[in-house]
């Protein structure tokens, strides 16, 4: 059973087309990575999924058609979208950012437990819990963005270049945390990256987007052994 299915989606901005019949699936409890150069349409794909732009084609969450729903409705159905460049609530505290991530949930006691879990996952956030998100470092903000997305208890989490601009050690920590969450909680993920090494290591499936078209898809292992991919995204 697939959690998320994107079927023949075309989308763009105004009259300018960006995506051409893009198809992609994310399986139950699995991680898919979407690779592609700058401007390929990765962000646009995620925006279509979370209802931020119009598209033709079909996008299904647990078999349910998402067409025509707004971003807030889609979030309440269980899609958490961590946008490129973080998108935390900069004038809310770290703790409030996490709390607001659980907006769709009603299980108050569980929410408190989960906030604590986020602090265990990202100990730096615990130290900064009363600080405004805007005052965090880039790495901390990215952790907060991931933590906030997880607080939604999503069926599937979309992450747009989570490693962008972070130091290598921090990227390692982040990916380790993502893998742990995926294993322990079974949350499916669709991760967009340009820098693909780590993403391919933790992913089950991989897709490659070029100028709005899907040019390659398969298991993460197969894709990472593809010569073109090695040259373009793995730096060897």
């Amino acid at each position: 059973m697939n959690v998320l299915e994107i079927k023949g989606v075309s989308a763009g901005y105004g009259r300018i087309p960006v995506l051409h019949h893009v198809s992609l699936v994310v399986g139950e409890k699995s991680i898919a990575v979407l690779l592609g150069a700058n401007g390929a349409g990765k962000t646009t794909t995620l925006r279509a999924v979370s209802g931020m732009i119009k598209y033709t084609g079909q996008i299904l969450l647990d078999g349910k058609d998402l067409k025509g729903r707004g971003p807030d409705q889609i979030a309440r159905l269980g899609i958490a979208h961590g946008v490129q460049g973080r998108g935390t609530f900069s004038d809310l505290t770290v703790e409030d950012n996490l709390a607001v991530g659980a907006f769709r949930r009603r299980d108050k006691a569980e929410i408190a437990v989960d906030i604590d879990q986020m602090y265990t996952l990202f100990p730096r956030l615990r130290e900064r819990r009363k600080q405004k998100a805007g005052s965090l470092s880039g790495g901390e903000q990215q952790m907060l963005a991931v933590g906030r997305a997880l607080m939604l208890k999503p069926r599937v989490m979309l992450l747009d270049e989570p490693s962008l601009g972070l130091a290598p050690v921090i990227i390692d920590d982040l990916y380790e945390a993502l893998q742990r969450v995926n294993r322990l909680q079974g949350i499916a993920m669709l991760i967009v990256e340009q820098n693909a090494n780590l993403a391919l290591e933790i992913a089950n499936d991989a897709y490659v987007l070029e100028t709005g078209s899907m040019v390659l898809s398969g298991t993460a292992r197969d894709v990472s052994e593809n010569d073109g991919v090695r040259a373009a995204y793995l730096g060897n």
């Binding site: 971003p71 807030d72 998108g87």
Partner: peptide, 24 residues
Amino acid sequence: TRLGTALRASASNATSAMLVGIPF
């Protein structure tokens, strides 16, 4: 309150507010 946090979140970042399910 939950409503107050949602109000502050919407004022702080409209897009992110919608993406956590807040009816903006």
